[in-house]
Each structure stands twice: as structure tokens, then as C-alpha cells.
Amino acid sequence: MSRQTVRSGDPRKVSAELFTLTYGALVSQLVKDYENVDEVNKQLDKLGYNMGIRLIEDFLARSNVGRCHDLRETADVIAKVGFKMFLGIVPTVSNWSPSGDEFSLLLDNNPLTDFVELPEGQSNLEYSSILCGVLRGALEMVQMEVNVWFVQDQLKGDNTTEIRVKFIRRLEDAVPVGED
């Protein structure tokens, strides 16, 4: 009883610093293990994908968000509900392509990079590419195939951090055997 009252707020929330530092340790270990920046980027993306396909279930269960009817709605939900719930930030949605199948998420402060400086010679490292994987994996589970990549990164001296999302196609539900 008393322990419950001491703890303030949502017990599921942990210190953002703990998360950021853990992620930093993961990246530096991968850099040590692979010695090849492209491979590290790929591994981070893959890790993110595997997290995304599970995270979406937690997200849907907690937010009670229904199916989105267009990409604008999807972008809004990602920025205002998804990022808010898991990282405590609300990115700005902008730079829509004329055909409406691409948008950017602008992050003023990326919580993953709070204590990070990229060392010399690592300029190709996509430090936060785990986020791309998470988005791709999560959206795949709700029948959307997307490409996600970094356009700008504050770690590389850009003014803002920009994640680009491009809608590829809708994935169809599997048809049971013997039907068409």
C-alpha cells in the first residue's frame, strides 16, 4: 500500500535518462561489434522493426485508436499520440508531398540523443535509426507498408531532426485457403 503512494505518476514511466543512456550503450556496443557504420545502421533499423511490431499492440491496447482512413490521420496519430506516449515529445508534421503520400516528422529535441556527440569519422552513423525501424514495423502491423529515413539530424549539425515517411502500399488481409 505505502509503496504505491510513494511512487508518483504512472508506474509504467521510467526516467528518460535511463532510457537514453541504455540506448547509447547499445549503439556504442554495436559500433564496437560491427566496425562498419552501414551495418550498425542496418542493425539498429532491424532492432527497431522488431520492437515496432510488438509496440503497436501495446499502443493500440492503451490508446484505443481505431483504424486510420488516410495518411494525414496516421501522421497525426503517430506524432500526437504515439511519440507522446513513448517518448514524451510531440513532433511537428510537415512537408507534405503534393500527392499526399509523404510527410516529415520534425523533432526539435530528439530524446535519444540527449548526451551524444558523434565522434570524428562516424558521420554516416544514423544514430537514431531505431526510430525508423519502429515506425516501419508498427505501421506494417496495421497494413501499411512505408519507407522511413532521416533527412536531417541535429547530431550532424542540421537545425532540426527530420524523419521522412513515405507510404508505399496497403497490405491486404490474408485470404483463407480455398477462397478468392
Binding site: R54, E57, D58, A61
Partner: peptide, 20 residues
């Protein structure tokens, strides 16, 4: 919905040993 959020997500999705 609760069956999904309180049971499936908690004991399957959050269990890394459960293959999806």
C-alpha cells in the same frame, strides 16, 4: 478489448519468449 489489452498484450506481446 480488455481481453486483448490486459491479457494478450501483457502476457504475450510483452513476453519476448512468445513468438508472434
Amino acid at each position: 478489448h480488455q481481453l486483448y489489452s490486459n491479457i494478450y498484450v501483457e502476457y504475450v506481446v510483452k513476453n519476448p519468449l512468445c513468438e508472434l
